[in-house]
Every structure is written in C-alpha cells, then in structure tokens.
C-alpha cells in the first residue's frame, strides 16, 4: 500500500502542477460516489449534503495542505437544470458532456465545466460527480 500511495502521490503531483495553470484536462469522467458513501464518514463528496451552499461558503480548511495548490475552483452543487426545450444558451455545435443514469439524461455544457471543473449532482437517483 505504501508503494501504491507513493506512486499516486507522485503522479498526482505531476498532474496538479500541470492542471494548476491549465485548468483543463480534456479528461472527463462521471464518477459514482456510491463507494464513498460506504466510508466511515458516511458522506458523499458533496453530492447532496450541501444543498443551498453558496460558492463563498465552500470550506477552505483543506487549502492549508502544504502539498497542494491553494488555488481553488468553484464546484457546482446540485445545479439547477432546465428542460431541453427551454435551452436558449446553446448553439447546435456547442459541446456538452452527456450522462444517462437509470433512464434520466442530463447535459453539462463544456464551457461551464471548464470553469467549475466539478459538478456534484444527482441523476436518476444516483449521486454522481462530473469532472472535467
């Protein structure tokens, strides 16, 4: 396990150094937080417990970690959504990240995700993390 941790620490160091200036890896993944919910804290990564939290209320405690950058992005928590026929802000060629869970589909405009980088959301009843 120590070897594993060391490896991840090393690669994460590389990645965060790059991402600090870039802000964007085109890397995208939607990640279920169900496994986190099995942890000792019983919580998920902000997927649902932070309703109503405004960006300025985001805890800052972890920014004091010496090994990680102090610059932070503003995540989306339980973002408001609109139905497709009410969308006026997207052009046909604008890029989106689309996810479908349990028959429910949702689109995350890329130009929003390149600013927020993380969305804590619930889709199809499942807590999901969308990251860009």
């Amino acid at each position: 396990m120590n070897r594993l941790m060391t490896r991840y620490r090393e690669v994460a160091l590389k990645a965060r150094i790059a991402a600090r200036t870039m802000g964007v890896a085109a890397a995208v993944g939607v990640t279920s937080l169900l496994l986190i919910a099995c942890g000792s804290q019983g919580g998920s990564t902000g997927a649902s417990p932070t309703t109503g939290q405004s960006p300025s209320d985001v805890p800052e405690a972890e920014t004091s970690r010496e090994n990680f950058p102090r610059s932070r992005f503003v995540p989306l928590d339980n973002p408001d959504v609109v139905p497709a026929d009410a969308v006026t802000f997207l052009q046909p060629d604008d890029r989106v990240l689309g996810v479908t869970v349990n028959g429910e589909s949702r689109a995350y405009p890329v130009n929003m995700m390149t600013f927020h980088h993380v969305a804590n959301d619930v889709v199809g009843g499942e807590p999901v993390l969308v990251t860009f």
Binding site: V28, G29, V30, T31, S32, L76, P79, D80, V81, V82, P83, A84, V87, L90, Q91, P92, D93, D94, R95, V96, L97, G98, V99, T100, V101, E104, S105, R106, A107, Y108, P109, M112, A119, V128, V130
Partner: peptide
C-alpha cells in the same frame, strides 16, 4: 466510472430528446 458522452448539443439532443441541461 459511468459512461460520459462527449458530443455536440445537437447530437446529444437527438440521442436523448428528453434530456435536462444545467
């Protein structure tokens, strides 16, 4: 990991007309 479809709004809408959007 869950599958994430990286595409245009037009194509996503054609695939999933019932989609919601942020």
């Amino acid at each position: 990991f869950l599958p994430l479809i990286h595409t245009t709004w037009e194509e996503w809408l054609a695939l999933h007309p019932e989609t919601s959007v942020l």
